[in-house]
Design a protein around this nucleic acid. Structure first.
Lengths: 260, 260
DNA sequence: TCGAATTTGTGCGTATGTATC
DNA sequence: GGATACATACGCACAAATTCG
């Protein structure tokens, strides 16, 4: 009865939902350049007409493309193809050249741009996860230092570093950004207290941005972030660990590895 | 008139949309353990009643949680809280132990679980991006092999490999998964045609899942994926490049690097 | 074994708020 | 101000999968 009453028709194409088909065709037009960056997609009403689908399907299709980061909806204006900027590379290879002494350069390693950073240190009890990484008992005191890196004034990277105070306490390098070796790298600072850093482990993952991170880096909560959990070891013992957080759509981490 | 006719009410709480509020409350219940893994969320109808919202809002709220990977919808059954397993580690260090000879183990490197994979190869013209990575001219013929890896039957990893046919064509290792060295690693296969792989570059990034990937790995479009773009070099010349794609919430890539 | 009820997933039409042009 | 377009929201219909008596 009901379909007679309303005259609604649902045609099954057997394969995939209509909104995925529409999204696919639009994606095609974007990736093959027919819809270059900054151009406007057909409006919801146009999609409805051109593809012969309903408003809902047109909306869902746009949502898929937005979720994929291909397009960006601007309320009242349109849906626009996003520029896909060449991502910055964070280059890692274990050793560091003499020119790369600062924390920023160590992580940035991009010679062409100059960055500045702010840092703030405080002492706190180690949270279980951090204690685990530093292989100390949870609740031990650690020096936490938070960094905000900027490139051309724009904040692009967050970093939080933890060092066990049992190691650095009452030494000249207790505060990473102060003293004679202030602002130098972990390797140099640890060398000053006879800790020879010989190994480095980095865990790369990704997760949605925390609200705080989104605020600091000027994005929306939920934006994908790359997280590098890095730990420096001296003779098998962790001497420092840090989380480096960058927007996933603007960064890549590259590793150069010898084979054999 | 209209709102009087229908009795529809749209109350603006000024802050955030209703579907985000509902999603937030459900997320709260999940993260604080009130809704532990494997339990069922209230059905769409229940959400509608309990939160006093419409069907659409309840649906959108569920979609948000699904996009975040917190829950998983099973058609006809319910929406279930996902287990949040400790992320699998993909361990990388450049060299490979003799036991890690297969592609899967090379990428998986998780001794505790056993995986199987399917592969399909075809020949095609190199797309510009791939040609760039292989340092060949765009349009050159390449052998493309696509892998789907499963752990305990569940698909968890996608990988696409490209090799220049100018290198492997008319050799016994032209097809990665066939012939005497079929299924062996890139290093072994290249050695068979006198290409000594000595370097490996990996670029780790993250991006939202393409619809196709989401389908293959059982997620929703937009879910964050880790992408490892890996290139093998023999004497400075690229001999193979591949994209490895895994869900970001279930994997970490770990690199062990010597210092100095 | 069968069938009814439930639930998700997809889809339709419409209304309204609000940002942009 | 008016037109356009996106974002959110309401209500409903139906297919497919699942569950359960």
């Amino acid at each position: 009865m009901s379909w007679l009453d309303t005259g609604r028709i649902q045609v099954s194409f057997g394969e995939q939902p209509a909104y995925l088909r529409v999204a696919g065709e639009l994606r095609q037009q974007i990736t093959n350049g027919f819809l270059p960056p900054h151009t406007r997609l057909p409006s919801q009403a146009r999609i409805r007409e051109e593809f012969g689908v309903s408003d809902t399907v047109a909306l869902e299709a746009r949502k898929v493309l937005m979720a994929e980061g291909l397009v960006e909806g601007r309320s009242g204006s349109g849906t626009y193809v996003r520029e896909h900027p060449a991502p910055r590379r964070i280059r890692r290879s274990g050793y560091r050249s003499p020119g790369e002494r600062t924390v920023f350069r160590q992580e940035q390693s991009d010679d062409t741009v100059k960055g500045v950073w702010e840092a703030r240190s405080d002492q706190r009890d180690a949270a279980p996860g951090i204690a685990d990484r530093l292989r100390i008992t949870a609740g031990s005191r650690v020096m936490r230092t938070r960094y905000l890196f900027r490139v051309e004034g724009e904040p692009v990277m967050l970093s939080t570093s933890w060092e066990p105070l049992a190691l650095t306490g009452r030494s000249p390098v207790m505060l990473p950004e102060e003293g004679p070796l202030g602002g130098q790298g972990v390797v140099e600072r640890m060398a000053a207290i006879d800790q020879v850093v010989d190994n480095l482990v980095e865990e790369v993952g990704a997760r949605p941005a925390l609200a705080e991170e989104a605020t600091a880096l000027g994005g929306v909560p939920g934006r994908a972030m790359l997280v590098i959990a890095r730990t420096h070891y001296a003779g098998g013992r962790p001497v420092e660990t840090a989380d480096v957080v960058v927007p996933a759509d603007r960064f890549r981490v590259t590793y150069h590895l010898p084979v054999r």
